[in-house]
């Protein structure tokens, strides 16, 4: 469904992605793990064409999206839904207008019909009677649910999740995990999530890919990842402060202060 080939991207002098290769099958749930600053967010923004790569290819359903202009990219984007880390709801619009935003732009539905659809989608994420509230009146967990409702409103084939559980308490985080699993079962979507929350990764992933220093270190099922031989992956999943990642980081800091 999605194939990423030799993806490279740098910002000013900082090479964030240094040749990422990753293939995501149709219907699969792929979770990309990695530390802060490893380039996870940059990667996911390339998949939906918000960022353009320096070099490399990204195929979505067989089509190379790195070669498309804005217009064509927009029609590809309709295949996607994305949940942002802090939900990124439009704060000038009410909840139902947020959920129905895509419908308003891309279908000829009346406001009444859009409202009805929005109510349906909100029910799917477990929210009732919030249509007329403003995003700022909702709690963080509820905002994420509204964000998810907005992401599924256009019935996408692919769902992207940017740190879906970050900033939530454990109970709310697990509810979001359940919703992500539920979305796959109900909507039959391919999903890509990026996270550093291993509990969430094990729970929602078919396969896990670890991104480190702009490259994919290892891809495997949650079981394979748990039994990894790779010392970097092992340090990350065990959440230890001691290991090769820390050593790398210290070396880097030394070099920087030497300059």
């Amino acid at each position: 469904m999605i194939k990423i080939v030799e993806l490279k991207k740098s910002f000013r002098n900082n090479q964030v992605l240094q040749g990422v290769d990753l293939e995501i099958q149709e219907g699969e749930s792929m979770v990309v793990i990695g530390g802060s600053g490893s380039g996870k967010s940059v990667l996911i923004k390339h998949i939906i064409g918000i960022l353009r790569p320096d070099t490399g290819r990204i195929y979505v359903a067989g089509e190379d999206i790195t070669q498309l202009n804005e217009q064509d990219l927009n029609s590809v984007r309709k295949k996607f839904g994305m949940l942002f880390q802090a939900a990124a709801l439009f704060d000038s619009l009410s909840v139902w207008e947020n959920v129905g935003f895509g419908l308003k732009q891309h279908t000829g539905l009346s406001d009444q019909e859009i409202r009805e659809k929005a109510r349906e989608k909100l029910a799917m994420v477990g929210l009732y009677d919030v249509e007329d509230l403003r995003p700022s009146e909702l709690s963080g967990g509820m905002q994420k649910r509204v964000g998810l409702a907005r992401a599924i409103a256009l019935e996408p084939q692919i769902l992207l999740y940017d740190e879906p559980t970050t900033g939530l308490d454990p109970i709310n985080a697990d509810m979001i995990n359940n919703l992500i699993i539920g979305m796959r079962e109900k909507l039959n979507v391919t999903s890509v999530a990026i996270t550093h929350d291993m509990v969430s990764a094990y729970k929602i992933a078919d396969r896990i890919a670890m991104l480190y220093k702009g490259k994919i270190l290892q891809v495997g099922t949650p079981r394979e990842i748990q039994n990894t031989d790779n010392p970097f992956v092992r340090q990350f999943i065990s959440g230890s402060a001691v290991g090769p990642i820390t050593e790398d980081l210290e070396k880097e800091l030394m070099e920087r202060s030497a300059k």
Partner: peptide, 17 residues
């Protein structure tokens, strides 16, 4: 504010330039 809270990115994802 829309930029730093990713609302501008969200517009892209909703296929709206």
């Amino acid at each position: 504010t829309m930029r730093v809270t990713e609302q501008i990115d969200a517009l892209y994802t909703l296929a709206t330039n």
